[in-house]
Design a protein around this nucleic acid. Sequence first.
DNA 1: CGGTGGGTTGAGGTATTTCAAGGCTCGTGG
DNA 2: CCACGAGCCTTGAAATACCTCAACCCACCG
Lengths: 223, 223
Amino acid sequence: MFVNVNANLANRARFIGEFDSLPDTQVAFSEFKYSRGAEVFGEAEPADYIYQVVSGAVRSYKLLSDGRRQIGAFHLVGDIFGLGNGAAHRFTAEAIVDTTLRLVRRTSLEHVAETNALVARNLLSMTANNLQHAEDHMLLLGRKTSLERVAAFLLEMDCRLTAAGVMALPMSRRDIADYLGLTLETVSRALSYLHDRGILGFLGQTQRQIVLLDRVALAELDL
Amino acid sequence: MFVNVNANLANRARFIGEFDSLPDTQVAFSEFKYSRGAEVFGEAEPADYIYQVVSGAVRSYKLLSDGRRQIGAFHLVGDIFGLGNGAAHRFTAEAIVDTTLRLVRRTSLEHVAETNALVARNLLSMTANNLQHAEDHMLLLGRKTSLERVAAFLLEMDCRLTAAGVMALPMSRRDIADYLGLTLETVSRALSYLHDRGILGFLGQTQRQIVLLDRVALAELDL
DNA sequence: CGGTGGGTTGAGGTATTTCAAGGCTCGTGG
DNA sequence: CCACGAGCCTTGAAATACCTCAACCCACCG
């Protein structure tokens, strides 16, 4: 269906410069485009690069043998992902929409980290942030009700991607469901419930542009 | 009910030496005992120390306001925990049984990491291991059935604490349930099911000593 | 001994899933 | 320009996996 962009990596470098979030270092990076649905890397593939989202959005997930999917994280503009993987990736990463990524060789970054304590500290702190997110998500997946999960999701996305009062979700109901450990129907019902209560509103007809009308009520649903 | 041992930290140091798992460094540590049920640290408390289990076992968990509990990890003999917390702990940690811990000041370790790349690398790799565990656990909590969860738990504990063919679980059914996002009754039923199938056996009458009779069947239940 | 803290098992309830139908949007092609 | 299908979302009804409530057992301990 989609071209695997990785195959063309060597031919498509566009730009070399500094990795913004790792100041005071000279690490070469390249920039690539992935079309909607394209795989950035697969689970268990060698982890040669780490990535930063320039535009678009990415989902990382694990699959069970029968197709059940758990999305571990959404990566939005500015996010860095593909870290803390040791030699091999532990997730599959896919572009949710057309996406541009910056990538740097993992080895080059690790090499710099050997001598530069600031970079080493940065790597550790980014990994610790990922860990914190995963820990919070375990609580959500293990112990929260469907409504609490959806409320938590909306509040998270509100922080991360609301612009001008409106939250434009890049991901489908199925993606949200697989992130929250629910079915897409349950997510849809929870959103309808919140809509009926006047806690959120939809803009346009796509159902992906959401306005949070009552953040307080939402925060009370999350615990 | 239980004395908070932290209050007595300064008075009870017993031993100073090297932290085994951080070779080539001179980091001072102390050793303390916690009785069954004692809190090692609470969520949101300042993270002054990191810990290593010398004997016993520890659970780290988060609570929701209404008492729902999610155990994020069990820490068994040799495990290091309390890492990657930034300035404050994100879990509560409690001794499951009478437990001895080694502790080192977080600041002293971080200080060493500034100059010693090996220690820095070690910190990163331990944090990455915690992250990997959390990622795997998200898949379990979000997408696995109760039987799959219990099978995965048994296989994990089998690796981590089986001695002489028998697995002596330190934790109660309730702890297991809160680790797996289930109720204790569901855990008990899953264990009974596996017992009835001849996949595992109980030793003694406490139901906490388990023998895995058919690891292959168990691995097939996990996916 | 009586009480307490596990653990198991049964019966019934319920939150969420599953199955099914229908609507809306958008791109494509006749 | 409209018909058509595909993808996405919503909603309803029925099924079910897991939870809740409750009883009971057993080991341990003062």
